[in-house]
Design a protein around this nucleic acid. Structure first.
Length: 370
DNA sequence: ATTCCACGGGAATCGGTGGCAA
DNA sequence: TTGCCACCGATTCCCGTGGAAT
């Protein structure tokens, strides 16, 4: 949440705030120019090109590691296309959604509001009815998309599908052959940036978003620390700006400290977005500290605290199977490292991140070790 | 080689909720 | 309005798989 209040309450020069434009650091900020992504913009534009002539856009599988700008690439390219042609663009965060959930999200974008229990078949019918112009459906976070969703969207004329995933090979081999054929030769991979490129990406943001200028070499340090991910680099710069003040110019802010603050902020937001069960599971893992907790011990601990933790809440404790699903989710969100096998341990990535909803210390006196 | 047990895919089940007919 | 049904999403149940210990 942007901290704007200080601007109005205190004279700027008396505060530690050097950020003058929060928007350029927001995750959904789309810059006018995508630095070092010219070729990717070209490839994507060519896939969308048929839409300019009222033809369905081509399917394209976009892949690459965290934070290399997959989503921004799509938004940026589409905004330009939209200015030129009568094309629709639907962006769906598909993580965890069923086939019906995805189709429903597309329909909602088109102005329909189908009930959650409308049959998938009906949803698809309505989708066809409403599809009157070329439409690009972007399925972000599409690593485990239900094949049904892809098949159904593929059946609709005028629709081009753009799944965004991390690992293209894994994705293709996990899906059904028909889908594989569609995307095998329609891929766009984004590589991590190097430190120089990241500095180029940070530079205009520092210019626009911060009071005063920032040394190029400092931006490069951040670039090195961010390991190829633009999102991490941008959030690190932002954290550094927060840590700076009139006494401590931004270049003197420790990059490591800023980096960790940025990571921790991202993880905190991730945890907050999850429902109660995940918080309980997370807190049990976190309570084990840096040594972690083996799967067996984890389940014992869960059983021991569950009565108290769930007391007075409508939710009830989970089966072992579902605890494993929650652990997998937490791993996905980079909140824990899940045990690889039964002799390994689950570990919290950052034990300083705590749940706002669940407090185990208040729930149990002393967890006795067995 | 055998045993132990967590893992994780998939089927079955449950609870909630629109839509619809009486 | 009421009662029923179909459907979804969440969860549990079931079970084959496989890594590590013995």
């Amino acid at each position: 949440v942007p901290d704007i209040t200080h601007h109005f309450i205190y004279p700027l020069h008396l505060t530690g705030i050097v950020i003058v434009d929060h928007q350029v650091f927001a995750d959904d900020h789309v810059p006018d120019r995508l630095v070092h992504r010219e070729r990717a913009v070209g490839t994507l534009s060519r896939a969308l090109e048929p839409a300019l002539h009222d033809q369905p856009p081509e399917d394209l599988l976009i892949h690459g590691p965290h934070g290399v700008g997959k989503t921004v690439l799509v938004r940026h390219t589409f905004e330009r296309l939209e200015a030129k042609a009568d094309v629709d663009y639907v962006y769906v965060r598909s993580m965890g959604r069923s086939a019906a959930g995805i189709i429903r999200a597309v329909l909602r974008h088109m102005g329909a509001n189908p009930a959650t229990n409308t049959p998938l078949e009906d949803l698809c019918l309505r989708l066809r009815e409403r599809m009157t112009r070329p439409t690009v459906v972007v399925l972000d976070e599409g690593d485990d998309l239900p094949a049904t969703a892809l098949r159904r969207l593929g059946d609709v004329d005028l629709v081009g599908v753009i799944p965004i995933v991390h690992d293209a090979d894994a994705w293709l081999s996990a899906t059904e052959p028909a889908v594989r054929r569609r995307f095998r030769s329609a891929q766009l991979g984004l590589d991590p940036y190097d430190a120089e490129e990241l500095a180029d990406i940070l530079d205009p943001r520092a210019e626009q978003g911060l009071r005063g200028s920032v040394d190029r070499s400092y931006l490069e340090y951040i670039g090195q620390r961010a390991e190829g991910a633009a999102r991490t680099a941008i959030q690190t710069l932002r954290a550094a700006a927060h840590l700076a003040d009139p006494e401590l110019p931004i270049e003197r802010v420790n990059v490591d400290a800023a980096y960790h603050q940025a990571l921790s902020r991202i993880r905190r937001a991730n945890l907050r977005s999850l429902p109660l069960h995940h918080h309980v599971v997370y807190e049990i893992v976190r309570a084990a500290g840096d040594d972690g907790v083996g799967p067996g011990t984890f389940h014992d601990a869960y059983d021991r605290v569950s009565d108290v933790v769930y007391q007075g809440r409508e939710a009830t404790p989970l089966s072992k199977r579902d605890r494993r699903r929650k652990l997998a989710k937490l791993d996905e969100y980079e909140l824990i490292d899940q045990a690889e096998n039964r002799h390994d341990t689950h570990k919290a990535c950052d034990t300083s991140i705590t749940s706002e909803f669940v407090d185990l210390a208040a729930a149990v006196d002393v967890p006795d070790e067995r």
